[in-house]
Computed example of a mutant assay.
Amino acid sequence: MPPRRRTDPEQGRAALRAALEAVDAGEAPERAVLAAAVRFTLEELAVRHPGGSVEVRVPPFAAVQVVQGPRHTRGTPPAVVETDPLTWLQLAVGRLAFEDARAGGRVRASGERADLGELLPVTAPGT
């Protein structure tokens, strides 16, 4: 069963564009815009790479489970990736490589399947 979308894709793409435009202008995106952009890109990741072996967390806005493999039902998942919202958006659109973010301490990743490098980006910045 494909993951359920909570964010309308059109609204999500608009929020992503607005958030990136704010960042490019040196401003902080509005919280609601940032939240919608994060949720949209996480949902896009879950649609493209369904599964339950990796939990991707972008607090305080959302978390999704992705990647085929062992699924967890309670407690800590077998693999966890966590980052802040602005780093996630840069990863999601390909402005930042996963390995660079991880090496720079901007992403915390643990577990056997926690390398998302081959799964990113999930959308282009202008979409």
Rank of each mutant, 00 (worst) to 15 (best):
D115N: 10
D24F: 11
P85N: 00
P70S: 11
A22Y: 03
P77G: 05
A15P: 03
R6K: 12
R17V: 09
R74N: 11
R108Q: 14
A63T: 04
E112M: 07
A124S: 13
W88I: 04
S110A: 15
V107P: 01
Q68V: 15
D8V: 05
Q90M: 14
P59F: 10
V67R: 03
L116Y: 01
A63M: 10
R95P: 02
A28E: 15
P85Q: 00
E21I: 09
E118M: 07
A22H: 09
G52H: 08
P3Q: 04
Q65Y: 09
P59R: 13
G117E: 03
D100E: 15
R48Y: 09
A19M: 03
A114R: 00
Q68K: 15
S53I: 09
D8S: 09
F61W: 14
A46K: 05
R74G: 06
G117K: 03
L116W: 04
R106P: 03
E30D: 13
E112H: 11
R48T: 11
E112D: 09
E118L: 12
E43M: 05
V47F: 06
R4T: 14
E27M: 13
Q90H: 15
A46L: 02
R71A: 15
R71E: 12
V54W: 03
L16R: 08
L89F: 01
W88F: 13
G51P: 03
G75D: 06
L20Y: 09
R48I: 10
Q65D: 11
A97N: 10
V66I: 14
L86R: 10
A103G: 13
R57V: 11
G111N: 01
V107I: 14
A79R: 02
R4Q: 13
A97K: 14
R6S: 13
R74K: 13
